[in-house]
Amino acid sequence: MSAEQERRKQQAAELAVKQIEESMIVGLGTGSTADLVTKRLAEQVAEGFDVIGVPTSRKTAELAGSLGIPLRDLQDVAHIDLTIDGADEIQPGTLFALKGAGGALLREKLVALDSSKVILVVDDTKIVDLIGNNFAVPVEVVQFGWRVPARGLGALGATIEMRLDPVTGQPFVTDNDNYVLDAAFGPIGDPNQLSRRVKEITGVIEHGLFVGVVDEVIVAGSDGTATLTPDVL
């Protein structure tokens, strides 16, 4: 990533953080863009800003905790006011999103679904006509008998790859002790239908299709930042 791209993403992250109000409970996303949000929020906390963060992964919890942001687990809060996260692909209009390249898709979705508002921060390379255009759909599955959901995904037309840990070369294990299957469907014409059909497969825990979840997307582009809201809910 160029220094200019990084600068634009930083601007978009700062714009998102401006929507955080005093005493809010805030969902903290996972990934490089979400880390920019966490770091900017930590600067405000150091100046006395009162918030509680709910991390979407162990990695985010480690970062936020090291920077002094007070943290709670999802089960320890009644509700989340605002979640800010990143995304791998965004479909304008609907704001359908594809997430999970970092492997935190289950916790990211749980936190998002418990939030009054969900904002995603991306650069303009993540905007696509149809999600699935550039990324496979991450699907979190149980370790035991993982080939069963893999066959089910294949029956839906996906090409399946087991996600591997880049260090060990062994299957990647999520924070929830599950595997991730990357299911390449190509451009997805009906994310609603695919979302339902994937969840019906025995052994599937969750998938990275975020359909009807996102309220706002802040896009960092060469001409500055733009804010997208859904045309169709």
Score class of each variant (00 low, 15 high):
K99F: 02
Q10H: 11
F96P: 00
G152R: 05
V173W: 01
H79C: 13
V167I: 13
A184H: 14
E206S: 15
G29L: 09
L36F: 02
R163G: 08
G86P: 05
V121P: 06
K109P: 12
L63P: 03
V137F: 02
V139E: 12
G65M: 07
I52W: 01
V217H: 03
K18R: 14
R151G: 00
I119L: 05
V142S: 03
T125W: 01
G68S: 13
G86A: 05
A184F: 10
G68M: 10
L82I: 12
L95K: 04
N178Y: 00
L156T: 09
G208T: 08
I90G: 12
G203P: 05
D85K: 12
E47W: 00
E89G: 11
S2K: 12
D123F: 01
A42L: 08
A155R: 15
G27E: 03
G31A: 06
Q44Y: 07
I131H: 02
P70E: 14
D124I: 01
V139K: 01
V217F: 02
T159M: 11
G203C: 08
I20H: 09
V204M: 11
K109I: 08
G53W: 03
A158G: 12
F185G: 14
F185K: 09
D175F: 03
P92I: 00
E108F: 03
R40M: 02
L28C: 07
P166D: 09
L63T: 07
I20Q: 13
L233Q: 13
G152T: 13
G48F: 03
S116K: 15
I201Y: 08
T168Y: 01
S222L: 11
G29C: 11
S195F: 04
D215F: 01
V173I: 15
L181Q: 13
V139T: 12
I69G: 13
R151E: 14
G93Q: 09
I188P: 09
E161L: 07
V219R: 01
V139D: 10
N134T: 12
F185D: 14
T168P: 05
T202I: 12
V180Q: 02
G31P: 02
V51T: 14
T33L: 09
S57P: 06
L156P: 06
P138G: 13
A226E: 15
R58G: 15
K18D: 12
D182G: 07
A12S: 09
V17I: 13
E43M: 08
F49I: 01
A104S: 14
N178F: 01
A61V: 01
